[in-house]
Design a protein around this nucleic acid. Structure first.
Lengths: 231, 231
DNA sequence: TTAGCTTATATGTCTATACAAAACTTTCTA
DNA sequence: TAGAAAGTTTTGTATAGACATATAAGCTAA
């Protein structure tokens, strides 16, 4: 018969109706069956379009109750978390890496608590620096559990950063990211070439493989750093 | 016949194979047809599972070339961006709002540049404060384009924050978020009850309706603020 | 009045099938 | 032999139909 209709077309048309307030916040929109008839598509196609809008937070759907336009669109921002190297290279800058220190020890209480380890746990503490066009870009201060990742004992991290090595060799199932602003410690300031107390942008990352903690990383950026996303 | 298999089951099983390195990074995994046979499901079901894994960044798919395990899983973190009020209330704290100032003016160059407006453009400048349990939580410094949103001329923002009013009344199609660390300006410090120069966590948000700029907001949080996400 | 049960209904998902589109390979042609 | 054309393979998407599941709403009985 006529042209086939893509779920994208339907999705975008419905998004437009919401944006243009033809479908008002909180209002019930037609059921899948009705929309399918209106757009001349199969219900499965309309369903896919609706699911995408729901995932984007524009609508809320409940079985039997139907679909409504979200009152307060709880929109979500998506940030891509690539390797530091890729992040730098995508900005068209050259990437350099420096290992600052590498020690096997037990961890301070704060680290143990965050990783959920007991007192005797052995950890590898690696401090390193990532540079973009020769200027400090990120100071990586990382603790790696030797119980979970014994293989790191044999890695010297002089040429490959822990970041990169772990992504390449150590699978993980869960990760937790925290971002905040802090004042640069004496050490961080020295490494990044800043004054102590300068505001820095800190990303903290914990990764786990099932219940076992793999690593805790504190990633410190100079105040020029920006984390950006669209929509 | 036998039990029907859910795309979730298939998705999770494949994720496990990747996590356990049974499917190695960079390796080609079986085609949809083969997987469908293996899991005893329809190809469409396997396809859905694979698409989710691709969306999560675990695999990369190309027509004709097949599907491979991502070498450097470019994983993405998803942050929920709710209304400040909801954000505070979800922490079990009480929410208060204070309007600090509201002026109709032309905008400073920096603002005009970011919003892409010409020199004569009229803007509403609204400064307000969001509090959690009576202590300053977020300082909102916002510029709203009067050309795009003439209706705000009639809103006094004494009880409803610009944040909330705009979400409720002004649809948008595009938004851009930027997060960074900065030193508190004298004004920001005063409003948030901090020392000038204290590190603050800043979120900048620009929203547009098709090509027209709606608003630019600078949202300043005290250094205790954390932005967290899982996976 | 209320707690529990039933029913109707909208969304959620699976299947089988078909065709579309991208991208790699091979063959043909100038 | 370069380049275009045709073929092949794999993923992408649409469809009709069926059944699954959550849940709002009505009904029943204590």
């Amino acid at each position: 018969m006529s042209e086939r209709v893509s779920f994208r077309t339907i999705r975008d048309e419905m998004a437009r109706r919401i944006a243009e307030r033809r479908w008002l916040p909180g209002a019930l929109i037609p059921g899948e069956e009705a929309l399918a008839r209106e757009f001349g598509a199969a219900r499965a196609t309309v369903n896919r379009a609706l699911q995408e809008l729901a995932r984007a937070g524009l609508i809320e759907r409940r079985r039997r109750a139907g679909t409504r336009v979200a009152r307060h669109p709880v929109r979500e921002a998506r940030f891509v978390i690539p390797l530091v190297r890729q992040e730098i290279e995508r900005q068209g800058k050259s990437y350099q890496y420096q290992l600052l220190s590498r020690h096997e020890t037990t961890a301070p209480d704060i680290v143990r608590a965050r990783l959920g380890l007991d007192e005797k746990a052995r950890l590898l503490h690696v401090r390193s620096l990532h540079l973009a066009d020769r200027s400090p870009y990120q100071f990586e201060d990382r603790w790696i559990s030797l119980d979970t990742v014994p293989a790191v004992r044999d890695v010297d991290f002089s040429t490959v950063s822990p970041n990169e090595w772990l992504v390449e060799h150590e699978p993980f199932t869960d990760a937790e990211f925290t971002f905040f602003a802090a004042a640069a410690s004496a050490e961080e300031a020295a490494v990044l070439g800043l004054q102590e107390g300068t505001p820095v942008f800190v990303g903290e990352r914990i990764t786990r493989l099932r219940n076992k903690s793999i690593t805790l990383a504190r990633l410190v950026h100079p105040p020029s750093h920006r984390m950006v996303t669209q929509l």
